[in-house]
Amino acid sequence: MSSHPPKNGERNGAAYARFIPREELRDFAAWTPDAFGGTPAHTPESRQPDSAQSVAEALQAQLHAARQAGYQDGYRDGLVALDSFKRSFAQQTTAQVGALLQRFDDELLALERQLAHAVARAAVELARQVVRSELATRPELVVKVAEDALGAVLLSARHIVVHVHPDDHDLVAQGAAEVLAARAARLVATSDVERGGCRIESELGRVDAQIGTRWAQAAATLGQDVPWRDAAAADDAEGRP
């Protein structure tokens, strides 16, 4: 054992090298770099569950946003398609209704024309029956016809001949005697002149006042081509002696 006394450093080193029992280490904790900040250190293993949850929530949020955006886009596209369909349907309906109204108007106009033609023809047919009845019941009307026909002849005309039906000769001779004498006209019975009318000839021309001619002119003013005699009446007239 050395007789030299220990140096100060040696004495101090021996003091710091003293063994500390476990019982004295109950409040000991291992030092970490962030221990001074007052927050416990987190190992990568402790942060992994929180990161996975955050990623899942972010993905869920993105999915929800994508769904909302898709819903809005689809709704907007649906409105646009609906508006386009409405306009197309309105245009198509308008065109169809316009064509239907035009067709209805054309058919109504054609019906009005047919009705007007039928009414005019019925009126002409009725007038023909009335005139025939008048001639049958009042044969003296031929006198007025002869006077009007003579009035249509120019005053300068000479050698006037009035042709009437044989059955009307006496009626005209008596009823229009003064007019015939004033125009120095000669009255002649002619079988080809129908009863109720007359034909006047002179050196200046002819005045056809026969009932068939006057009837055709009157019917033409109504747009009708109805002869004075129908086929049956014409056959009867030709068969009479």
Rank of each mutant, 00 (worst) to 15 (best):
P227L: 00
D106F: 06
R76L: 11
R121S: 13
Q174N: 13
A185Q: 05
A146R: 03
Q68A: 15
A58S: 11
G13V: 00
N8E: 06
H117M: 12
V131D: 00
L204Y: 05
A232R: 06
E203L: 01
T32D: 09
D208A: 02
T221H: 11
D192A: 09
A184K: 13
T43Q: 05
R199Y: 13
A173D: 12
Y16G: 04
P6A: 09
S202H: 08
V207T: 07
S191G: 10
E125V: 14
T93F: 12
A233C: 01
A127G: 14
L141I: 07
N8G: 04
A218W: 09
E140R: 09
T32F: 10
P139T: 04
F89L: 10
L135G: 01
L100T: 13
A95T: 13
D235P: 01
R128P: 00
P166F: 06
D236Q: 13
P49I: 00
S88P: 00
R26K: 15
E125D: 11
R47G: 00
D106P: 00
S88Q: 11
T93D: 12
A234V: 09
K86D: 08
L171M: 08
Q53K: 09
L204V: 10
R158V: 13
H4S: 12
A81L: 07
F28E: 13
E147W: 02
S3V: 10
L187G: 04
L126Y: 12
A118G: 10
T190C: 08
E194G: 10
A232Y: 00
R132M: 10
